[in-house]
Design a protein around this nucleic acid. Sequence first.
RNA 1: GAGCCUGUGGCGGAAUUGGUAGACGCAGCGGACUUAAAAUCCGCCGGGGUAAAACCCAUGAGGGUUCGAGUCCCUCCAGGCUCACCA
Length: 950
Amino acid sequence: MGNADQQHSDTTPTNRYSAQMAQDIELRWQRWWEAQGTYVQPNPGEDGFDASKPKYFCMDMFPYPSGAGLHVGHPEGYTATDIICRYKRMKGFNVLHPMGWDAFGLPAEQYAIQTGVHPEITTKTAIDNFRRQLQRFGFCYDWTREFGTIDEDYYKWTQWIYLKVYHSWFDVEADRGKGKARPINDLISDFMSGKRTVKLNPHAVEYTGAGDLPDGTDAGPWETLDNETRKAVVDSYRLAYLSQQTVNWCPKLGTALANEEVKDGLSERGGFPVFRKPLRQWMFRITAYSDRLLDGLKDLDWPNSTKTQQAEWIGRSEGAEVGFPIVLGGGMEMGETLRVFTTRPDTIYGATYMVVAPEHGLVEMAMEFAGEDTDCDQISEYAAWASNRSDIERQENKEKTGIFLGIHVRNPLTEELIPVWTADYVMMNYGTGAIMAVPGQDQRDWDFAKKFDLPIVRTVTPPKDFEGDAYTGDGPAMNSGILDGLMIDDAKAKIIEWMSEHHIGAKRVNFKLRDWLFSRQRYWGEPFPIVFDDRGNHHGVGEDSLPVRLPPLADYQPVESDTPQPLLAKATDWVHTTAGEAGVDGMHPDSKVTRETNTMPGWAGSCWYYLRYCDPKNSEKLIGDAAQDYWMGEGGVDLYIGGNEHAVLHLLYARFWHMVMFDLDVVKSQEPFRKLFHQGMITSHAFQRPNKTLVPIDEVENRGTEEKPAYFETAENTPVERIVAKMSKSLKNVVNPDDVIEEYGADTFRLYEMYMGPLEASKPWNTRDIIGLYRLVQKMWRLCIDEATGELKFADAADDKVEKQLHRMVAKVGDDVEKLSFNTAIAAMFEFVNVAKRLTKDQMDRFVRVIGPFTPHVAEEIWHKMGNETSVAVADWPSFDEAMLVDDEIEIPIQVMGKVRARLHVAPDTDVKTLEEMALANSRIQELIEGKTVRKVVVVPGRLVNIVAN
RNA sequence: GAGCCUGUGGCGGAAUUGGUAGACGCAGCGGACUUAAAAUCCGCCGGGGUAAAACCCAUGAGGGUUCGAGUCCCUCCAGGCUCACCA
């Protein structure tokens, strides 16, 4: 089926474009490009750099090289960027188009464990294979800039950035209240000089709930404090900090995972159950950047869906924080308040009970001050049950559970006592971990109140015909004292003002975004440049001692357990070192220190790789100034293409690092990626039984015709339906790019993937359709080359129709490439080769330039046959004449009441009046409007005439 | 449950952004060339209707705005993606 080689027979011309010829042409030119350094882009200051040209920095999301090799999804985005880069180069840009490898992280380590081969070996093999496969496509990457995140030269700088972040804090007041990162030493000198009050960072998540005052507690003058206190205070401000956190612990993977790496209560990698467990972990204070990460989205040329996803992930919501005085069992006010966050402070009169998360401090306190209503045994049992519940269980069963704590709070508005419950539908890590429950206006609270028979008070008047439970819509307030009659917005404003005046509460903005859990207990990652002294205090390793090399480890099998043990702890010689060895300033060189044994997560290396591409060999700096000024410019990367699965994680993390580096003057642009684009997924076909289960394609046969297929599952003899499905090994519908290239060549493969449909759409792979693009390459070839002799063939004189069509193609292809609309650009090529049978040398010259970005190999072959000695890749993009795009005569439809009834053939610039006259004079139209009144004639010059008559 | 996206011939998809629906490719059908086939070239190719036209229907369904709707608005259906007890 469709094997291009089988089309050869004795009568086939010897120089017809064939799969065999494609192999020969492609490999030959690929070697030549490499030898010539055709795609090597010099940096500012280097030989061959042309400073007069504008820059174009175009990047693919680099791949994670797996043992399985490239699948057909990879080259989709890569072909798109390749075409754009080739086009931009021809349009006079200096093009930075690099490729590298995201190579640390869990999948490589899991694979190594399965195969028993060290991840360093499997990873390097996979990289070599990926590189070979990518090069076979003829992509115009500047391979001299290649690196992997596992290279010591690279992760040295990853660690360097980590240290930068570690040694800085977020000054919320800086930059007119927007806040920015500053060196931690600035903070310390402020403390020492007394310029700044010494107190724990009131915004530090790890101290939520600590201190009596929402604004933190004054620790006293710096000189009166002991070293431990000073360190605790300073550390509470660091952008990278250690904290006991309830983490997503995955026993199977033997590591903690970030929230983002947990899907439906299962680990994204492997799909293993995840539990909550308190662990001491490195965190990034990304929440300090919530507002800036959100605001920055506005100016980015990114897909809206991606911006929305990030915005929702950051999850800004406005509301109020309100304090409810706590009343113990005996009715005694204890002087503390229960703080809650609510977006509906206007409903406070309807707060009939309170709920705190099972991990909330008040649960312990309730048991400590137990009154007669407090059943301590049941409470602790419930708290234990709730914390052992995996997220997957929580999501599968949303039946409300909870228990009364035996204590009350006083509603500051009604003065009534309200019972306090604990329930796991309230999360400790959002807001304050406590809510005021208003069942009248919140369905979750309603469900809980119904189950536990708690009172329900409506405070917003529902519409007359309202029949649901909780009413969340707008309406005048009721049962609400001073708020009665006000609509929601006014009621909110009024109650917040009232609360502020009475020091009960205040307006507050809350974010869903949480601090970023940055340590993993695995082997295959960047070591932290951190050591601990004998008192357990952490110290940054000196910059001169970077990189902290990952120690060789023969046994990297994770310990499957409930008590986390970082794998690096096994490298005892490496772990135990001295301050001098590790390069710690301010300590005696012989002091014994131990190294941090956690490693960084896979995201670390991909957070900043775009910067290193600009200056990959720089041993002095992460990126040189000249390289940064030129390539990153104002807005950073000019085009970044990759899958939308990275819409939140990678792209948010990278923006965060970039912002910190911007604040610390490491980078000069505010955002890393000015324009972002997601290529769609390439899917495949599979078959579905009536019960929706899937059948692999090799277990199905078509018992109908091509036109009217009737698919049957062979073994079962039952009909199945053909559907679009993801490519997967189990469905046997995976396409291997190597096979396709062997059968048709890389040029055809490139064209096919670009012709399948819009770049952003997900599209099913249809092996049958490839032949059409193969024929296109053959036609391109045949248009220029005599198939019998292999020599160029030329037309004696330019044909007008062909010349016109050529101008059209030049215009259309250029336009479409700029719009990333490659499928329509290729359609224009089809149209051209369908019209043109022979070209003059001058026409051929332009034709070859235009196909160059799409089919670089066959274009280069013809280009050189034409006598050119330099690559078509560095030729100029041809120009075209606007006048040639206009037809001599166009067809204008005449509509009557919006339906086409006749057509006019006129010059394209025929004016309104003439068109109207011609339309009304048309005999067919006269028949139709006879006896009717012409009410109106709409004339759109160059488009149509519409007559309104009745 | 919330948000976003998509729905056009047998299939993949076009449509100047409100102006002739179905460009281009695949598949199919007919023809030329050939002893024959492949390849190549030419023609046809949404449905109904007609001798051929005319004409009617048609962009998931139903309404609306408009001289005119695949495109804009409302309701619904189907599929996909994202988030999800977030207060």
